[in-house]
Design a protein around this nucleic acid. Structure first.
Ligand SMILES: [Mn+2]
Ligand SMILES: [Mn+2]
Ligand SMILES: [Zn+2]
Ligand SMILES: [Zn+2]
Lengths: 145, 145
DNA sequence: GGGTGACGTAGACTTTGTCTAAAAACTCGA
DNA sequence: TCGAGTTTTTAGACAAAGTCTACGTCACCC
């Protein structure tokens, strides 16, 4: 029942601490990217991040954006969400939760974990361990025909 | 508890009937693609289909493979499975079911619907209707350090 | 024969993401 | 402070999946 408070923009010190605490060197570029990602609860593509981070004169290269998003995901700072065949979304919310995906609009919305229970997790194939469970509820706009 | 029998290669007449029954004109190219897709329970990418359909001299173009997979999916003959950011898989099994995805090997395996129950489907956002529920259990090989 | 519509095709093109090779920026001990 | 080694960033080439366009082909009908 615990509810995470809505995300808020972080101070520079908070960003540095967050990166530090996940074993990520807080370079300037990584701080800028983290600022964008953690500004609020949202689901951004790599290209969204690239644009936002470069919108007012700060310059971070495409390679660095991709490298950094991969690093953040590997270190557990953010989560990759794969719902759209054309691009990956990055999610600052790493708590267990699921997603609505509106196939008409491309909109991606969170579903709190306590809103959707999974029963009977099946036994995994031999020699494998679980890495995560994604539930995506695809929705359409009504009367879109 | 009803269990679908394992899929088997279809006769040409069965393929034609299958396409007809879904309102798809059974052209030669569509028949060849359907033969490949429905030969057995499997998850093929567009490129897999393109290669298989062209392996012994029969020529179907890339454009036609993509067009046909899109058409089959739209008509409900097959299902798109989006688990890998680099390619879409196409699934001849349109019964409700879910997937294991081995992130080490890229292997995709079915989970029968009765093996995994979802409780408390959350209320959908206003003005939208459900289009499908995907559950993906990501797994890794043990001790892959 | 000629028109119409559905379908298939080559190949250019777009988009997302990766890779390479080099520059820049840190780290740390002498 | 110097300098060697390491980590990070970068431009731009590259790769892969998928889309689009413009044209060809075929069936059907008159
Ligand atoms: Mn794509
Ligand atoms: Mn891609
Ligand atoms: Zn989310
Ligand atoms: Zn399947």
């Amino acid at each position: 029942m615990q509810k995470r408070p809505p995300r808020q923009p972080l101070s520079q010190q908070q960003v540095i601490d967050l990166l530090d605490s996940h074993g990520v060197q807080p370079t300037m570029q990584r701080q800028e990217i983290a600022q964008v990602l953690f500004a609020r609860d949202q689901h951004l593509s790599a290209d969204d991040v690239l644009k936002q981070v470069n919108q007012d004169s700060a310059r971070v290269s495409k390679a660095t954006v991709y490298n950094t998003l991969g690093l953040f995901a590997a270190k557990g700072l953010i989560r990759e969400v794969i719902v759209d065949p054309s691009r990956v979304f990055y999610d600052p919310n790493t708590c267990e939760h699921h997603h609505f995906y509106n196939v008409d609009t491309g909109e991606l919305m969170d579903i709190d974990a306590d809103q959707l229970a999974l029963m009977n997790l099946p036994t995994l194939p031999a020699g494998t361990v679980a890495d995560g469970v994604d539930v995506i509820i695809r929705i359409r706009n009504q009367a879109s025909a």
